[in-house]
Structures are given as structure tokens and as C-alpha cells.
Amino acid sequence: MKAKAISIHSSRGGTGKTVIAVNLAAILANKGLNIALLDLDFRAPSLAKVFSKGIKFPVRCWLNDFLNGKCSAEHVLLDISKKYNLKGKLLIGLANPDIEAIRNIMEKSRAWEVTAVKKLFSLLSSLFNDKNIDYCIFDTSPGIQYSSINAVVSSDISVIITTLDSLDIEGTENMLSDLYDALAKRTFVLINKFSPETRLQSTENQGDIVNRVERALKHTVIGAIPCYCDVLQTERTSLLAVEKPSHPFIKNLEEVVGKIEHNI
């Protein structure tokens, strides 16, 4: 199997990107694969909070420091596999949630962004060639901005998360034509948080919803995950794929994982 980089992206915030990225990584690692999960959402970092139970603070080297050339790839990755009793390896790279670090990233020049995307490629090369990583997952910022475009450019496959909200669908449609088609990237759409009320007709099932969105977006939809209120209310520090592996949300995600692997 050839190592792959997968970016998890969306046109707007609140679609469930981070929950999906984190649990996808945990599901794959629990299958015995070696996974790296990188927080490329520098404007609203969240993985430091999600994995706060599994890491030691202060963090020695953030992804921000790596991209600024202040530390090596070796120091930016934290191995949390043992903390969560995973079968495979799970390495994480965290974005600095400090307000100064967020401000610093927002002030970067276009020249710096060129260096950042090159550093991202070198990090991927080190993960795939030296650390035997099978998949690297990027949790990105929503919409079209530098950190998310850098992630999309350096990834092999992109998964765009959308809800059935019309603004979300329209945003996804624009992003697919303006960004993904322009970069000729292999892209899949994943519907998240759909509720029975969003069905057009009472007879419309999950498959019909997938077909309807697929026709509207003209891209493959690899799944539709219903809205689970208990997932939304769960503590962000709890890793559902590890703590409740039989939860329907995780079962749905396992199907998505199967489809991604099949398409690769």
C-alpha cells in the first residue's frame, strides 16, 4: 500500500471536521496502521485540547515552530499510541492555540507561505519514508485560506465535510470548482449531521440523500452520517473511536474508512 496524505476540509465551520479527522485517525490506528494527524487549522487550533489528556504540557515544538524553521520534524510529532492503547502508531502534530501564535500566522507573507508548503512536503516525506506512516490526516481551517490551501496542495486525497444546510452545499459547490477542480485533486464529499427532517420526501432514505447531493455537487459522496446529539454533547477530550467503538457514529465512520481505502 502506498502512503497517502488525506486532508479533511469544509467550506464553513461547524461541520464536524475535527471530530471526523480525530476519529478517522483513531479507527485507522486501531486497525494496526501507522497514522499521523496534523492540526493545520492555525486560526482555530483544537487538537491540543482534544488530546490534552494524552500529552504533556508545555508542548516542546508546535507545528507553527516547525513551519517557522525553529524545530525539526522529529520534535514536532508526539506519539500518543500507548496513551490510547491503539494497535498501530498514532503521531500527532499540534497547532499552537496561543493568541500570539495565531496572530503571528495571520501576518505571514506570501513568500512565507511558499516556504510553509515546501516544509509540509518535507514533513510528509519524512513521515512516509522514515517513520513508516501509512496515512497522514490533515485537520484544516474551513474555507479558502492559506493554511487550508497548503493542506489541499500537499495532500493526495481530500474529504470535504458538508451538512445539508443549503449555504453549506453552495459553499462546497463553489469550493469544488474554484479550488479542487483547479488543483485537479482527488476529492470525496462526506455528508455529516443530517437529520430525518432534511429529507425532501418522507420516502427519501440515506441512499437517496447521497444521490441527491452527488447530483448537485457532481462529485463522489462517500457517505452520509446522521446527526447524533450525544456526539455533539460529548466532552471534546473523549476519543469516541476508543471509548465507544460500537457507537453508530463510529460504525458509520468505519464504513467511510472502508470506502476511502477501497478508492485508494
Binding site: R110, Y146, I149, A184
Partner: peptide
């Protein structure tokens, strides 16, 4: 600077 945002304004042949 051929930054990723500029890429989007280049023709596909050059972008690749």
C-alpha cells in the same frame, strides 16, 4: 512568489 493562492490564477499546465 508562486504561493498556493497564486497557483489558482495560473493556467493548469503551469500550476502542475
Amino acid at each position: 512568489e508562486p504561493d498556493p493562492m497564486t497557483l489558482l490564477s495560473l493556467p493548469m499546465s503551469l500550476r502542475t
